[in-house]
């Protein structure tokens, strides 16, 4: 029973990971692609971890469960931070938004000539 539930969790997690990869290809610019990769891959990987924990039994293998929980916490902290760093770096480098983007307040407040300033 546990292994079936765990397999279902792992399968759903992998499906979300695949969706994140499809999003990386389909979406038009780096910012939208980062959104897809950050969100889908974060939850997909967390669901794989939960599936591993369930299929191996939570307390039956406490070592594995503890490692899975630490992995999940690190992914939840580092994935959005890395996405923010990539988006900020891409913007500082001058990567344009998709041409059908609705609004860009950042460019209004920090015009292009100020991109050499360090906004870290």
């Amino acid at each position: 029973m546990n292994s079936v539930t765990g397999m279902i969790f792992i399968a759903v997690g992998l499906a979300f990971n695949v969706l994140g990869c499809i999003g990386m290809i389909r979406l038009p610019d780096i910012y939208n692609r980062l959104q897809a990769s950050t969100k889908c891959v974060t939850m997909g990987t967390c669901m794989v971890m939960i599936g591993v924990m369930i299929s191996s039994g939570f307390l039956h293998s406490a070592q594995l469960s503890a490692r899975c929980i630490i992995c999940m916490v690190f992914i939840l902290i580092t994935a959005p931070t890395a996405a923010h760093a990539l988006a900020h770096g891409a913007y500082s480098f001058g990567v344009k938004l998709w041409e059908k983007s609705v609004v860009n307040r950042y460019e209004e407040d920090f015009p292009k000539k100020s991109t050499d300033q360090d906004h870290a």
């Binding site: 038009p28 969100k39 889908c40 983007s101 609004v103 860009n104």
Partner: peptide
């Protein structure tokens, strides 16, 4: 996000606010 990715017309209206 999954809905926006697999929808054939890709209903996104991106921008920086």
């Amino acid at each position: 996000v999954a809905y926006r990715i697999i929808h054939p017309a890709m209903p996104i209206h991106p921008g920086i606010v």
